[in-house]
């Protein structure tokens, strides 16, 4: 599904990612953990195609195609979805309109019929239930005036509407209380399937109690310094990130 090979990324000439290797197979859930500033969002943003990042070396393939050469909207239509750490407010464009526009762009790309407002409403009714979102959020401008938790829920709602093949969740747990966290996790778990992969980026182990990963990677100073199974997350919780930073000084390749 996704192959990242020796990815180096700079922002304004400063190296942020310093050789990332990551392979995500179909249906797998990978957690990427790391302290603040380790480059988690940078990795997610580069995968989604945000501007302002310079890939100095390395390659990323998605479904066998060069992802980095693909425009962000095409990536999205091909099934890449990033849930933003900081979802953006779009005054004047309602959530409902925005989502239909997005879904129809994706459907058109797949050669499917675009949905009318009525048909789209059916899809929305079906998907909104599990997320326990207030219906009024659909009529409001995208993320405008939403609380932190509402914004995160809205990201997952968008994901469930667009049904991506690869979902990258950037700190979807931050700012959520435990009830909201459970709802969001249930939303994600409901989308897990044999042909859908997830990269779950998080600072805390907490989320991984609810979204149980197949693999855990630890990012420190732009490198993956440790990879392992789900138990690695617990180990990390116990020992803290300091434990991995020692390793980061002398990085050793670790097999998954």
């Amino acid at each position: 599904m996704l192959e990242i090979k020796d990815l180096h990324v700079s922002i304004e000439g400063r190296a942020i990612l310093k050789g990332i290797d990551l392979s995500v197979g179909e249906g797998e859930v990978h957690a990427v953990m790391g302290p603040n500033g380790s480059g988690k969002s940078t990795l997610a943003s580069v995968l989604a195609g945000r501007e302002g990042y310079e890939v100095t070396s390395g390659a990323v393939t998605y479904k066998g195609r060069d992802l980095l050469e693909t425009a962000p909207e095409i990536r999205a239509r091909e099934g890449v979805f990033m849930a933003f750490q900081y979802p953006v407010e779009i005054p004047g464009v309602t959530n409902m309109y925005f989502l239909r526009e997005a879904l129809n762009a994706v459907r058109k790309h797949r050669g499917e019929e675009e949905l009318s407002a009525g048909e789209f409403l059916k899809v929305v009714r079906e998907k909104i239930g599990p997320l326990q979102m207030d219906r009024s959020m659909l009529k409001r401008a995208v993320n405008e005036g939403f609380s932190g938790g509402e914004k995160k829920r809205n990201e997952i709602f968008q994901m469930s509407i667009l049904e991506p093949a690869l979902a990258i969740l950037d700190e979807t747990d931050s700012g959520l209380d435990i009830d909201a966290l459970k709802i969001v996790a249930a939303g994600v778990n409901g989308l897990r399937s044999a042909n859908r992969s997830f990269v779950v980026v998080t600072h805390y182990q907490r989320l991984l109690n609810y979204i149980v990963p197949d693999y855990v990677h630890v990012l420190a100073d732009g490198r993956i310094v440790k990879s392992g199974g789900k138990s690695l997350a617990l180990e990390l919780e116990e020992k803290g990130y300091g434990w991995t930073e020692e390793t980061a000084a002398n990085p050793q390749p670790v097999g998954v």
Binding site: E51, P72, E73, A102
Partner: peptide
């Protein structure tokens, strides 16, 4: 707003649109 533009693109919406 460049951030809003990217947000929309990241959901599959054409940049011109």
């Amino acid at each position: 707003d460049a951030a809003a533009l990217f947000y929309m693109q990241s959901r599959g919406i054409d940049v011109e649109r």
